[in-house]
C-alpha cells in the first residue's frame, strides 16, 4: 500500500505541493490528473524516492521512502517500476539490452533465461522484431513500449506511470493504456498513472485524484469524478472529455 501523508514541496520559494495526502491500496491503480505544472510528476518522483519532500511522508508498506537511504532505499526501489515521460531508455544500448539490463544487473538468471524473458516481454508490448534497434531508430510510441517492457520485466509490485501517452497519437495512446491495463490484470501491481487522457484512462483505473493548486481537490472513483459538481473538477474533466470526444 502507498500512503502519501501531507507532502509539501517548494522550488526556489514557489510551493508546488501544499499538503498532498493520498492512499493507494494494494493492487489498485490511481489516476492522478490535473493541469500541466500542478505538481503531478513531482509527486510521482517523491513516491519513487527521486525527490525528498520538505515536509510529510511517503510510506510504502509502512516504510518511509523519503527518509530511507542506502540498502533499504535500493530494496524499496527494486519493488518499483517507473515509466518515464520520455522513456529514459539508455541510448547507447539496443532495445534488447535495455530490457535485459535490470535482469542482468539484479538477478542471477542465466543468459538463456534472460534472453527468453526479454523476448517474451518485448512480444507482449508488441515490439517483436525490433529487439536490436536502438532507441534513436524507433518511434516515440515504440520507445514508450520498450520502456514499459523494461519497467515490467522484473514483475514490480508497484508501477508508476508518468504521462505514458503524452506526445503519442490517439491510436497509439489508446494502445499503451490498453497495454497498461493488460499488464495490471496479469501482474496485479499497485499503480499511479499521471495522465491527461480523460476520460480514456477512467476505464483502466480504480480511483482518480485531481491535483489543483498544490492540493488534492477531488478524489473518488472515475464515475464519482465524472459526476462531481466541483467547479475546478468540472472545468478540467469536462473540458478534457469534450476534447477527447472531438478526437
Amino acid at each position: 500500500m502507498i500512503e502519501i501523508e501531507n507532502v509539501h514541496k517548494s522550488f526556489d520559494g514557489h510551493a508546488v505541493l501544499k499538503g498532498v495526502s493520498l492512499t493507494i491500496p494494494n493492487g489498485k491503480v490511481l489516476a492522478l490528473i490535473g493541469a500541466s505544472g500542478c505538481g503531478k510528476s513531482v509527486l510521482l518522483k517523491h513516491v519513487a524516492g527521486l525527490m525528498t519532500p520538505d515536509q510529510g511522508r511517503i510510506l510504502i508498506d509502512d516504510q518511509d521512502i523519503a527518509s530511507s537511504r542506502g540498502k533499504p532505499l535500493r530494496a524499496l526501489r527494486e519493488r518499483l517500476g517507473f515509466l518515464f515521460q520520455g522513456g529514459a531508455l539508455f541510448d547507447s544500448m539496443s532495445i534488447f539490452e535495455n530490457v535485459a539490463f535490470p535482469l542482468k544487473e539484479k538477478t542471477r538468471l542465466s543468459d538463456s533465461v534472460i534472453r527468453s524473458r526479454v523476448f517474451d516481454e518485448l512480444d507482449r508490448v508488441g515490439l517483436a522484431g525490433s529487439e536490436f534497434k536502438y532507441p534513436s531508430q524507433i518511434s516515440g510510441g515504440m520507445v514508450k513500449r520498450a520502456a514499459l517492457a523494461r519497467a515490467l520485466v522484473r514483475d514490480p509490485e508497484i508501477m508508476l506511470f508518468d504521462e505514458p501517452t503524452t506526445g503519442l497519437d490517439p491510436v497509439i495512446g489508446h494502445a499503451i493504456l490498453k497495454l497498461i491495463d493488460e499488464c495490471h490484470q496479469k501482474l496485479s501491481f499497485t499503480g499511479i498513472v499521471v495522465t491527461h487522457e480523460i476520460p480514456r484512462v477512467f476505464s483502466i483505473v480504480d480511483r482518480v485524484a485531481m491535483l489543483h493548486e498544490g492540493t488534492v481537490t477531488a478524489e473518488g472513483s472515475p464515475q464519482e469524478l465524472s459526476a462531481s459538481k466541483d467547479p475546478a473538477v468540472q472545468a478540467f474533466v469536462g473540458q478534457e472529455e469534450t476534447r477527447e470526444g472531438g478526437k
Binding site: 518515464f84 520520455g86 529514459a88 541510448d91 539490463f101 544487473e105 539484479k106
Partner: peptide, 18 residues
C-alpha cells in the same frame, strides 16, 4: 550530462543501481 537530463540516471537509480 545527457544521461542526467534525459532521466537515464534516474532510471538507473530506480533499478536499485548505484
Amino acid at each position: 550530462g545527457i544521461m542526467r537530463i534525459s532521466e537515464q540516471v534516474d532510471a538507473l537509480e530506480l533499478m536499485g543501481l548505484n
